[in-house]
């Protein structure tokens, strides 16, 4: 008992108080910063990109495909591509994830998530999610598990992962959706009561990521069902996930009462 208390005291308070303004280490690769004027069209970046997320002349990055590996930055001799440590990357539209030179973090934060009143009124105080891992690599799953640990403590915002789709208000999908998981995913979606939202988490879920050319995928699910929120990353950082979901169900701080 005494030892337990001692351990508890040594730990202190671990949780991040202001999740929306949480500091991030500068090394983190978040929102890319592109500079066309530096680019000499050598094409190395496009060639090395493992997922075909990048185009040059003019420079464009599709964050739905990007694995944030930083290889393009490393091969660029002219410093035309950089990654900022801005981590609020979620977007409510697929097109919103495609960024170019004009995208700044202020602009991105303002426009990426379209807040819908009916979503805010239904889910702003409680959102229960069912996660489906559909062929991923366990990276996003580790990070989603981390959202509920003592540091990030997502439960305090009323967002939780639940065990059954019948208890859920929405699905969180990770992985590129393999043939073998397509049926289970569809079943899980149908078992979730309406109204429900669908959140895609990670490059694999959004675009197939590094597995997009595989013949073992079945992405029909996305032709049938609309997606509410795209959260890019490889894997998604817990802060990206929490802020993305919070932004979608609560809106921006200033717009709130």
């Amino acid at each position: 008992m005494f030892d337990t208390l001692k351990s508890r005291i040594f730990q202190g308070n671990q949780f991040i108080k202001d999740i929306e303004q949480a500091p991030m280490r500068e090394q983190f690769r978040g929102l890319p910063v592109l500079k066309n004027s530096n680019c000499d069209n050598c094409g190395r970046c496009e060639k090395i990109c493992p997922t075909g997320a990048l185009e040059f002349n003019p420079l464009r990055i599709d964050m739905g495909k990007c694995t944030f590996c930083g290889d393009c930055k490393n091969v660029c001799a002219k410093n035309a591509i950089n990654f900022s440590n801005f981590y609020k990357l979620a977007s409510s539209s697929r097109e919103g994830l495609i960024i170019d030179e004009r995208t700044t973090k202020e602009l991105y934060e303002k426009t990426a998530i379209e807040v819908k009143n009916e979503i805010v009124s239904m889910f702003s105080r409680s959102l229960k999610l069912r996660q489906v891992s559909a062929g991923g690599c366990n990276g996003c799953e580790l990070e989603l598990n981390a959202t509920s640990n003592v540091n990030f403590d997502m439960g305090r915002f009323g967002i939780d992962f639940v065990a059954s789709p019948r208890h859920a208000d929405g699905l969180v999908i990770t992985g590129p959706v393999t043939k073998n998981m397509a049926y289970a995913l569809e079943d899980c979606f149908l078992a979730t009561p309406n109204p429900k939202i669908v959140i895609l988490c990670g490059a694999c879920a959004i675009s197939g990521g590094v597995f997009q050319d595989s013949s073992e995928l079945n992405r029909e699910f996305f032709e049938k069902h609309p997606v509410d929120l795209y959260i890019p990353g490889c894997p998604v950082h817990p802060l990206t996930f929490i802020n993305g979901v919070l932004g979608y169900i609560r809106g921006k701080k200033k717009e709130r009462k």
């Binding site: 992985g175 393999t178 043939k179 073998n180 998981m181 597995f211 050319d213 595989s214 073992e216 995928l217």
Partner: peptide, 10 residues
């Protein structure tokens, strides 16, 4: 087998 993505052929 649910996670089978054909990694070796990729």
């Amino acid at each position: 087998g649910y996670q089978h993505r054909g990694v070796e052929s990729l």
